[in-house]
Design a protein around this nucleic acid. Structure first.
Lengths: 256, 256
DNA sequence: CTTACGAGG
DNA sequence: CCTCTTAAG
């Protein structure tokens, strides 16, 4: 089973860069997207409803903002497009597809980098989301939590750790929150497979300067999985051969 | 003497399309621009203050909106960047460069096509501007009134005359106003040289559809000149070899 | 720097 | 349809 997560920073922009051509041959069973920034109708207009895929989407109320989606080869038994948090459900940050014994989530955590107001919103999200993750972890189904978490966990998850200690996305409180989550039954799929890696596995590079060319990146896109799935991990890869967005897709394979 | 008028629809955009390369070799003594849509500093950033040219500019108060400029090989004796009409002077629609016995004006008349409010503004402009044109005509200097007038004068000045009789830019009241102006001492340079021409000489084509490819255009950019200059007209050309904008430059030569 | 939106044309 | 704005990232 192959699951991919990707922040596309505008699915219409990603489509222009060949995202849907790549999707066709990527071998995934489920693909989770964040920052779709388009309505279902707009997604359809750019070839975003390809045959052979089921598409489950949650838009933000504000047009062109945020938005998540799940593309699945198999139809979901059930789809839930919120986590019962009015403020952030209105921002289109959560969609969950339920299959037989498996739930796949596409989540887009707020960025706090635009200022203190959005950082405060990010902390509100983290509080609410932690409660929801606890509920998911206590359920019977295995779960893959895909998403752009907008948090780099440890110094090996970011290029310039010292310079970013006071920047949103690498603040001690954010990193501590993620450590807490990982202590409550969730496993970071990429890090489980490559625990002793040198700094790397980055999934995001700023558009400013030559960040991608110089690999000045952050690992902020994750698949967190329940322990049953962690035991089935076989491979993880950050796909950098094509650029669809300022983020790179994270591809994770699980033994069937 | 060669004088050129061009609505550049964003001078920064036109610069990306090679406008300043073309300017260097265009042979003009004076070039009048409309819809500059950039501040003097922004113009400078994109190479808009080339050596060998004097640049006289009037910005709108609203950033990125309207704005006119005059590029001149010779320095002006005097520059006036308004026509004493508070409403439209604030919109950056008039700049006049005064030379020995000659005044060159770059004027950008309002478009009314976005709705009744802007059409009403256009009529207010026409009323005020007519008074100003009368003053200019009564002066001692010869005058070249360059600009985007946002009015096609007669059926041979527009591709689809019947279909546009009720559209802003070809309304009877607008066309009548222009006829009035031409009756008070101003000569339409292009039409003076090519009076019996078939429909054509268009200077603007919609960006929608294939208007340029199909030559579905409007002649709305003019040089209106005082009678002394009308006698010196030698040549007029709409420059279509390169596209800097949805408008084409109008090049007019006057005997020295 | 890039993607969206909305105004204006 | 295109070029600007601003907000957001």
């Amino acid at each position: 089973m192959r699951i991919i997560t990707a922040n596309v920073n505008g699915l219409r922009s990603a489509a222009r860069k060949g995202f849907f051509d790549w999707l066709e041959g990527c071998g995934a069973d489920v693909v989770c997207l964040q920052e779709v920034r388009a309505s279902a109708a707009q997604v359809e207009e750019v070839g975003g409803k390809p045959p052979g895929w089921h598409v489950y989407q949650r838009e933000a109320e504000k047009p062109g903002y945020s938005g998540v989606a799940i593309y699945s080869r198999e139809p979901a038994r059930e789809v839930v497009d919120h986590f019962n948090c009015a403020e952030f459900d209105a921002e289109g940050r959560y969609v969950e597809a339920r299959f037989d014994g498996l739930r796949v989530v596409s989540a887009y955590l707020p960025s706090g980098s635009s200022g203190p107001e959005r950082q405060a919103a990010k902390y509100r999200f983290l509080d609410e989301f932690a409660l929801h993750l606890d509920k998911l972890a206590r359920g019977r189904d295995e779960v893959v939590l895909c998403g752009d978490w907008n948090i780099a966990h440890t110094p090996i998850d970011i290029c310039n750790d010292k310079g970013n200690r006071r920047n949103s996305g690498f603040l001690p409180a954010e990193r501590g929150w993620l450590t807490e989550v990982l202590g409550r039954g969730w496993v970071d799929a990429f890090r489980q497979l490559y625990p002793a890696e040198e700094p790397g596995g980055y999934t995001w590079w700023s558009n400013r300067g030559q960040a991608f060319a110089k690999n000045v990146g952050w690992r902020i896109d994750y698949q967190l999985v329940t322990t049953g799935l962690a035991a089935r991990l076989t491979r993880a890869e950050v796909y950098k051969a094509q650029r669809f967005s300022d983020h790179a897709p994270l591809i994770v394979d699980y033994a069937d």
